[in-house]
Structure formats: structure tokens, C-alpha cells
Nucleic acid binder design. Sequence first.
DNA 1: CATGAATGAGATTTCATTCAT
DNA 2: TATGAATGAAATCTCATTCAT
Lengths: 204, 204, 204, 204
Amino acid sequence: MSLREKKIAKKREDILRSAVKIISEKGYHKTTLEDIAAHLYMTKGSIYYYFKDKQDLIYQTQAMLIQESIENIKNVIEEQGNVTEKLRRAMIKHIEFVIRERMGFSIGIKPEQVFEKQYLEKILHLRGQYESYFDRIITMGVEEKVFHPVDVKIVRNLLLGAMNWVVQWYSPEGKKDVKELAETISDYLLRILLKGGENSTEEM
Amino acid sequence: MSLREKKIAKKREDILRSAVKIISEKGYHKTTLEDIAAHLYMTKGSIYYYFKDKQDLIYQTQAMLIQESIENIKNVIEEQGNVTEKLRRAMIKHIEFVIRERMGFSIGIKPEQVFEKQYLEKILHLRGQYESYFDRIITMGVEEKVFHPVDVKIVRNLLLGAMNWVVQWYSPEGKKDVKELAETISDYLLRILLKGGENSTEEM
Amino acid sequence: MSLREKKIAKKREDILRSAVKIISEKGYHKTTLEDIAAHLYMTKGSIYYYFKDKQDLIYQTQAMLIQESIENIKNVIEEQGNVTEKLRRAMIKHIEFVIRERMGFSIGIKPEQVFEKQYLEKILHLRGQYESYFDRIITMGVEEKVFHPVDVKIVRNLLLGAMNWVVQWYSPEGKKDVKELAETISDYLLRILLKGGENSTEEM
Amino acid sequence: MSLREKKIAKKREDILRSAVKIISEKGYHKTTLEDIAAHLYMTKGSIYYYFKDKQDLIYQTQAMLIQESIENIKNVIEEQGNVTEKLRRAMIKHIEFVIRERMGFSIGIKPEQVFEKQYLEKILHLRGQYESYFDRIITMGVEEKVFHPVDVKIVRNLLLGAMNWVVQWYSPEGKKDVKELAETISDYLLRILLKGGENSTEEM
DNA sequence: CATGAATGAGATTTCATTCAT
DNA sequence: TATGAATGAAATCTCATTCAT
């Protein structure tokens, strides 16, 4: 990659980050290209040098976020640890990510309602990939008899739903910090899968 | 309520139902008043006879849905049954409702990003009411030592998140029918709270 | 005129008065038929029983106001008094009228910009009539050599302009009451016409 | 001011002039942004590049007109001449201005009925400034005992009313040209203030 | 007579998109 | 590359007008 290409790639990412930030604040449907550009002291015209159109830009933000999530979970899987630890870490990462980017998957909207076929397929494919890593961990746990035998897809969706919903209620003013909160949530959710009561941190 | 008032109330509800339907299909920000009106063979102008403006209309749909949910959970609480049964039934009702109306709370968007102060407060108040009924059941279970001692608000949010997220992944083509699915989900989620393994419907 | 006709005539006048009031408050272009009707606890639909359309209604208000003004000035002319007294009384009446109805001629708009040909001609004709009474008094004064020889039309327009403009600046909170104010204004304006300084109420 | 800023300022003024012209022809409430834009071969959308909204645009036209008037009267005051000459010249300028722009102050409407608080205050302030220059001249004349002692505010309002009303009756077809007419009017109105009969151009 | 309800034309406004410079 | 400027389609909203009851 030449220097020029690097610069372009850098700028593209800047725009994507800006978009993520603004969308997380104002919501997808109230975010205009003007907003995104202004945040970078650009004009909206320039955005078209880097992205085909608004849909493309939004798609890229989603793709970027999911890809980062995929990297996260890949790392978690490769790390040492038993399956419970892995799932726990994956969830913590996910929750921290959701809170940090103030955005769950799909910016709080159903991708079907926003993207056209071309982008939709790609998004759904990426999403599917990420989900499959979760499925893999869950399946492992079930096979190792550490987890209850469950309908993997349903449970995975429950976990993701509970975690993505955090966007709706998390407040930085809460008494728990992000890490602590993520751990608490993960532990609660693990109970859906864990056999026995060993992990049930009995609070007073 | 006079006949006339009934008629107007009926029409208002028709419009709200139409709005719920269209929004659930196309998403909030792609739904125009034209769409909503056309679905009832009205013109968009007529909508303004019944609602102050679009924001008012959207607010009313949300209020209606939450109020119905509140009725549901109130009934559940008043019915016979132990606390586990009550929470289970409340969750099943919620899931069925979400699937039927194809809409979780807040049409998949953060109300803060859509409503202005006046409406926002009312929505948040209604939502808070509904949530408090859940909290009440959970607290009861904890006090009766049937549920683990937990952070009630967090757990309630996890349950609601997992259930509302169903909108994103439920497909009528699935092998489980709605009732069965709702039961399955509820049973999984109950494990977050239940002590012992008694409820863990060991599949297979 | 039958009782029925009387009732209708009465209602028509009610509506006209209501229209005058609302227009004087909100301005012509912000006044809707709804406003006018609501002020009488009617619905706008009913207005169409009494008036062909909005233009007709507005036209009638104007016609009514000018006709009343014409009656006023006719009476003034027929009363006893020298020409100066007559002009003074005519002006006082006009000013009082403008303040009372909070409306000069033509609701502050050029009739050409509001009325279509049919109504326009009638309005201009009525207006012309009223103006001709003023002209008559002025001409009399000139012929009697009580007034300066002037371009009658120009002076009449200056007088009317100065008087109609009162709408723009009159405030009920002022220290002068309406009668006093009207007299003061009339005396000032008379100086345009009066020979010698006899009327110049030398203030301190 | 950079070239770019000049260009944009120029365009803004073009739009304002266009607005003044159209409003003077069709009246404020019949003038659409479409009209104003079309007159400049633009589209209405473009207007929003230069002005926040219609109210802003209208406000700017008013501000522009009053500011020009203020410049005019300032110059008149600074010029040589006795107080009578100054008031005469100020009036002539005002009348010529009103005829040229075919618009008195406040486009023939009460600003209270058109502008919201923010704009209203600014307009009233500007208007007040302009009026204060008139007041200053009148007060000077009174103090120099050249003018009758009068209620300055009332007389100023009468003068302005008489002059602004010209919009309603001036016709280019009249036998007097604009300058001549403005002089005639000014001389008539001066009689309200002048002591003695020296200025009363005795017409035949 | 009166009105509730609906309509539709038109106005304002927003904003993604384009394009010349 | 970047941007200023313009565009046009679409959305919201208003309101005079109509009409069945």
C-alpha cells in the first residue's frame, strides 16, 4: 500500500469513526452527512470522494464494527482457558464494545430496513460469522457437558439480545464501572448455560 | 363516551395499528404518513385530523403498545401461581406480544433520539411503570428465596433485552410455533434467576 | 325581511365581527377560517352556509367596515358646524374607529394583493366613496378660503395614511385616552390645511 | 472580506432584492420561496443555502430596508442646512425610498404578526433607531423654536404614517414625477410643525 | 342548519447527491 | 482532493373547501 493509499485509508476510517460517533448520539435516521462531515471539519461533498453514497458509508461502519468484534472473539477463542472462561471473556468483550461504541449490532435498526440487497447480504454474512463464533463456543461447552444441552441458536440470540440492549440502559453515572458491569452481566447470562450452581456468585 | 367519540377513538386506533404495522415492516424512519394513510385508504391530510403531528402519532403508538403490555403484566401478577410461574407467564406474554406486533419497546430506537421532551417524559414514565412490574416479580422471588439474590434492575434489563431482541431474529418459518418459542426462551431466561437445577429442562 | 332572514343576517354579522377581531389580532394571512369559527363556537364548515368562500367573507368584513365609516362621515357632514369643525370631527371619528376595530382600511394590506377583480372593484368603489366625502370637505374648506389651496387628493391621502397608521403604534397603555389622542392627532393634521396659526394649540 | 465572502454576500443581497420585489408585487402572504427563487432562476432549495428559513429571509429584507433608511437619514442629518431643510430632505428621501422599493416599513404588516420574538426584537430595535433620528430632528426644530412645540412621538408617527401610506396610492401614471411628489408631500407635512406661514407654498 | 370528516393542493423544509472549479 | 453551490425529490404540515348525514 502506497503512502497515498494509506492516507486515503486513514481518512476513510476517520469518517467511519465520525459516523459511528454521530449515529450513536443522534440516532441513525437523524444523522446527516453534513453532521458526519462537520465533525471532521470537512464538507459533505468530500465524503463522496471516499464513499459511493450514504448507504455505502453506513454499510462500512457496520462492517467495521462487526469485523472488529470478529477479531475480538477470534482472539478470545485462541487464548488459553476453559470453555466457560472463553464464553465469559467473549461476552465481556462484546459488552465493553457495545458500551464503548454506544452501539449494538446494526445501529439499533434492522438491517433489512436500511440496506439494499447488495449490502444486506454482506452485512448478514458478517453478522453470521460473528454469531457462528459464539455458536462454536456454546457448542463446545455443550459437548464438553459443561453447559446444558440447549438450542444453540436461540441461546446465542438471547445472549446477544441481552448484551446489545445494554445500549438502551447503560448510564456512565451508574455505580459500577464498565468492566465490573460487563462481568456482572456475563456472569448472570452464563447461568443460562452453566450446569450446577458453581458460578452463581451469591450476592448478599 | 358518545357514539361519535367512540367512532373517533376507533379511527384513531385504526391509524395507530396501521402505523405499528408499517413501522414494523419498513422501520421508523422510512415510514411516511403517506404510507400509514394509504394502508387505510385515507389521505395523509386526514391523519392531521386525528393527530397533531407525526411525532404525536408515533408517540401514541408507543404509548398504546406499552399500555397494552402493562395490562398484560398486571393480569399476570393478579393471577394464581407461584412467583416462578408468574415471571414465566409475564415473559411469555411479552415475547408473544413482541412477535405479534413485530416491535419491542421503542420501535427499536432509543426514544431519546426520537421524542422531544414532552413526549419523552411520558414514554419513559410508561416504560418505567412496565419495568417496575417486572422488578416487583423479581424482587418477590428473591425475597421468597426462590430466585438468586441479584441486582434486580440489571437482571430485568437483561431479560427485556433478550426478549425485545427477538424482533431481530424471529422468523415465522422456524420449526417452533410462537407459543413454543416463547416458552423455550422464558425457560432459558429463568435460569438466570432460579436456584438449583430443577427447571433446567434437560433437552435431548 | 322575515324572521329567518333576520336570524341569518344576524349570524352573518356575528361572523364578520369575529373575523374583524381575529384578523386584527393575528393579521390577515395568519387568520384561518377555523380561528374565526372557533371564536363563535362554530365549525368552519358552517361558515360556508353564510359565505361563499373565504375571499367573500374577507370582502364582506372590509365592505362592512367601510360602510360604517361612510355612515359616520355622512353624519358628520350633515351636522352643524363650520368646515374646520367638520373635518376635525370626521378625523376624530376615523381615528376612533381605527383604534376600536384595530384595523385601518384594507386590513393593512393592499386590496389589489388579496381580492380578485369582482371583489376588488367593489372594495375600491366603496373606498373611493369614503374618500370622496373627505375630498368634499377639504374642497369646501379650500373654496371657503379657510384651508390652503392644496392638491385635494394628495392631502386626503396624507390624512388617511397618518390616521390609518395609528393601528401600528397605538397602545392602550399610553397616557392619553382614545378621545384625547384622536383630538390631538386631528389638530396636528389640521395644520396641513388651516391658514393662519389660530388652531395651533401651543403646547409647553 | 474574501472574494468568496463577497460572492456569497452578493448572492444574499440578490435574493433579498428579489424578495423585496416579489413581496411588493404580490404581498407578503402570497409570496412563496418558489416565486423568489424563480425570479433569480434558482430553485427554492438553494435559498436554504443562504438563509435559515423563510422567516429569516423576510427578516433580512426588512433589516436591509431599514438599515438603508437609517443610512439615508444619517447622511441627511450630517449635511449642511437648517433644521427645516433637514427634516424636508429626510422626508423626501423616505418617500422616494418607499416608492422605489414599493414598500413602507414592515411590508405593510405589523411585524408583531409575522416575526417571532428573536427577529421581532431586532426589527423593532432597528425601527426604533430610525424613528429616533426623526425624533432628533423634530426635537431640534422645537428647541430652536422653528417648530411648534409638539408631542414628538405622535408627530413623528403621523409623518411616517402619511409617508408609508404612499405605497397604497402612488401610481406611476400620476402627473407628478417621484421627486416632485415627494417634495409636495414633504411641504404639506412640514406645515404640521412650521410656525408662521412662510413655507406654505400658496398654490393657485 | 350544522358539523364531522375527509380531501388535495400547495407551502415550507430537509438532505442526499452532483458537479464545476 | 476538497469544496462551495445548486438541485430536486420527498417529507411534513396547513388549510380552504366539500359533502354526506
